[in-house]
Design a protein around this nucleic acid. Sequence first.
DNA 1: CCTCCAGGTTAACGACCGCTAACCTCCCTG
DNA 2: CAGGGAGGTTAGCGGTCGTTAACCTGGAGG
Lengths: 200, 200
Amino acid sequence: MATRTDAPTRREQILKEAARLFAERGFHGVGVDEIGAAVGISGPGLYRHFAGKDAMLAELLVGISESLLTGAKRRLAEANGAGGVAPGAVLDSLIEGHIDFALDDRPLITLHDRELDRLRDADRKLVRQLQRQYVELWVAVVRRLYPDLTEPAARSAVHSVFGLLNSTPHLTRPGSLPDRAGTAELLHRMARGAFAAAGA
Amino acid sequence: MATRTDAPTRREQILKEAARLFAERGFHGVGVDEIGAAVGISGPGLYRHFAGKDAMLAELLVGISESLLTGAKRRLAEANGAGGVAPGAVLDSLIEGHIDFALDDRPLITLHDRELDRLRDADRKLVRQLQRQYVELWVAVVRRLYPDLTEPAARSAVHSVFGLLNSTPHLTRPGSLPDRAGTAELLHRMARGAFAAAGA
DNA sequence: CCTCCAGGTTAACGACCGCTAACCTCCCTG
DNA sequence: CAGGGAGGTTAGCGGTCGTTAACCTGGAGG
């Protein structure tokens, strides 16, 4: 099991800093020396923890996709286990989970739809499969709430709402944005409004 | 004036292919030899048309920002010239313009919010200033339509709707998306719905 | 017909980058 | 108290990349 409350592992430090740097300057724009410097070691010391630069990106992207999908499945199961919650409440739960992720792990959300093509074939296929499962899970919930939506329209709507929710990195002129709770609530309302408009 | 209906200039060919490649693989992920090959010349021949790789990116990003801002100003002037159109109609016009751009110049819309940090300081400041003017123009229109929105909230809402509208590149599993008109209309409805929900 | 330049070509340079090799140094363990 | 592995270090190799240099060529203009 992973150490969650302990002090962060070296590996975890490296992944966190790598995510930040990749998001800021792009995968090819960051050198291994910079990543090392960000955690206090220098250059090739990283190779004691990762097979290479590609492996860091792969672990980040797979981790993100798995985390999103796992969280969504858990929320869906909780709703179903609670004896048939209203479809709107399930959608609210999915939206809330996605917003939490987007606000708490901004660099990861940026990487998630930006550096996918830098992966080796096997990893890219895995990430895409996880992403597709995540999308299809949303599509099913949205169509249950708005049965008039065709499946392609629902899928487009879901992708568009992801674009809306993932826009938080662009609000990052630090100090100028409202508080976290207010931002989360605004994004949530807008996402619901967008779906409602799509389903009409 | 630029040649619009004539055969495209070499410069224009290069810019178009560079935009596509930068959007696909990132600025640092594309070599000058590839850009040259994409227009039938090879490698250093590009330096007869541009001062360097950076100059191509700069011209692309400045062009995008200017084009978006100019179009929005024109639409606003048309509305004001027509003797006070309803605020909702002005917002519709802005949304329509942005959607046209996002659907017709997908690679450019991708570059626009992804490779800004690769610019030299002067160019980056110019692009950011143009982008800010574009955002503020939207914010003013949105606040006229939804006066209860605070300015920070309106700005966040505008950025979020940009995220929604700019999500079109993610729908590009070619052949699977509905027709252009249908996509445009869906995006338009969702954007209006998101704004309406934000303003409540 | 000569000239000249716009727009190419190939060769090559210098910088950088990912990665490996070789070595060092704690610290934990038997 | 050996000793050995985990986790560093620096040096350096091989490849790639952006850019420059030097040269070539076809076609327009006097």
